[in-house]
Amino acid sequence: MERRGAAGELGYRNLAQVLRHAVRWDLKTARLWVERAVALSREVTPTGALLEAELPVTAGVVAEGALSGEHVSVVAEVMQELPAEVERSVVDFALDHEPAAVRAFGKELAYRLYQDDPEPREIEPLRQKNQLRMQWSGDRLEIWAKLDKVAGAKFEAMVDPLAKPRPETPEEGPDLRFRAEREGDAFAELIDLVARADQLPEHGGEPVTMVLTMKYEDLAAEVGAAGLDTRERVPAGEMRQLACTAGIVPVVLGGRSEAMDIGRKTRSFPPAIRRLLVTRDRGCAFPGCERPPRHCDAHHVQHWADGGVTSGHNAVLLCRHHHTLIHRSGWQVEMVAASPVFVGPAWLDPGRVPRRNLLHAA
């Protein structure tokens, strides 16, 4: 299926995305299965010639059911650094050991094979890439980062003065925060400073914005909680504090506080309609997708080129991947009771059952 281009025929980016919907695998699992299949299967060329698999010895043993999928992945990994004639040795070792041991065996074998080779000449080191990972753990965002020398020095220079211990005062006494706590508070203060800058990038035509949604009556009475677009909750008291330095945009669902329909005048969605979509969809509306609103585009349910109007009643938030999927595949989206529902292609769902994204449901 991978080699004949089945994914493109169905409107998908790659075969792993097809398997994700067809058999409900995680994307990582689907990619592993495709990679293993490519390594183990023969190929027929356009002229009819038969090409052996990349790992012919492994393929034969797998056909007998003697190796697990994890073993196949590790054998393929270590064979990238080894000549083809030692595959039998690696497979024989894999038949008696767990995958982690096979990886160690492969490294040792590569060392023994190449230990007498001349040392590679030194080359100009590549510029280190900046890395950042963010993950919610409960109600806290965990951040891990690696920055190159220049970016790291800039960040340290900005955080350092904000992280100094507070001066001791009779009222508060000495600053008892640990260094990690002081630097964490400094990082949070730095975020506030950046948020007040006037040269931030935009999302969907508006400056970078944190959207919190709650009833006005609850906000005034300091009860309940506001909802972030990440589905986290912020207590009403903290919401009122944020509102002291933030703009408040009232959104009346089903009301007419703002113009939510601009007809055929333009294809692009103005900020007012996008705010409505953020409030209603809370992220990518495609079933099972967790992408937040800042990663989404506004999509015309009835395409603008086909006469569709630019309005909140004819729009849905979709991440870039699912936006492309809707345009190129057999997936369809329609509005039912003022909410978007999706219908899969016939090959995936012969019953054509409408689906909603329950992850973002109110």
Rank of each mutant, 00 (worst) to 15 (best):
P270W: 06
V249Q: 07
A298H: 13
I273A: 02
A195L: 14
V309P: 08
T213W: 04
C284L: 00
R282T: 04
K215D: 02
V301I: 15
Y216E: 13
L276I: 01
F269S: 08
A236D: 10
A285T: 05
E222F: 06
R231G: 00
E238F: 13
V249P: 00
I191V: 15
A246R: 04
A272K: 03
T279G: 04
A188Y: 06
F286Q: 07
L318Y: 01
E206H: 09
S268R: 10
V223A: 12
M239W: 06
G283H: 08
K215P: 00
V309H: 13
D306C: 08
M260T: 05
T213G: 06
R264P: 10
R267E: 06
M260P: 00
G204K: 11
G288R: 01
A197F: 06
E181Q: 15
A226I: 00
R282E: 07
G312H: 09
R233V: 03
P270F: 09
D192P: 00
M214P: 00
T279A: 14
D261C: 13
V194I: 14
A195H: 07
L317T: 09
E232H: 15
P250A: 08
C296H: 09
R233P: 00
D281R: 10
G224T: 04
D185M: 15
V234R: 06
G312Q: 07
E206T: 13
C284K: 00
F187K: 05
F286P: 05
L277V: 01
V278K: 02
L193E: 10
R291P: 03
R274S: 01
P271N: 11
E181L: 02
A259W: 02
P235M: 12
H295C: 14
E183Q: 15
L253S: 10
T209N: 01
D185P: 03
L219M: 15
G288N: 00
L193C: 02
M260S: 03
S257W: 03
R196Y: 05
P235W: 14
V249K: 12
E217W: 04
A315K: 09
A315M: 09
V249L: 12
R231I: 00
R282C: 07
D192I: 02
R231N: 00
A272L: 03
R274T: 01
R264A: 15
A298M: 10
D281V: 08
V309Q: 08
A272Q: 05
V301R: 11
G247L: 08
T245Q: 10
L228P: 01
D229A: 01
G184P: 04
G308H: 09
L219Y: 15
G283C: 10
Q241F: 03
G288D: 00
L317F: 10
G263C: 11
A305G: 06
P201F: 12
E181F: 08
R280V: 11
E189R: 14
H299T: 13
P250V: 10
W304V: 09
S257N: 13
D218V: 12
V316N: 12
M214R: 02
L228S: 15
T279L: 05
L200E: 06
T279Y: 04
L200M: 11
A285N: 08
D198N: 14
G283N: 10
V301K: 13
V208P: 01
A298R: 12
P201S: 11
L219E: 05
R231M: 00
P270I: 10
D218L: 14
T279Q: 06
I191T: 06
T230R: 01
P207Q: 02
V211Q: 03
C296K: 09
T245Y: 04
G205L: 08
A236N: 14
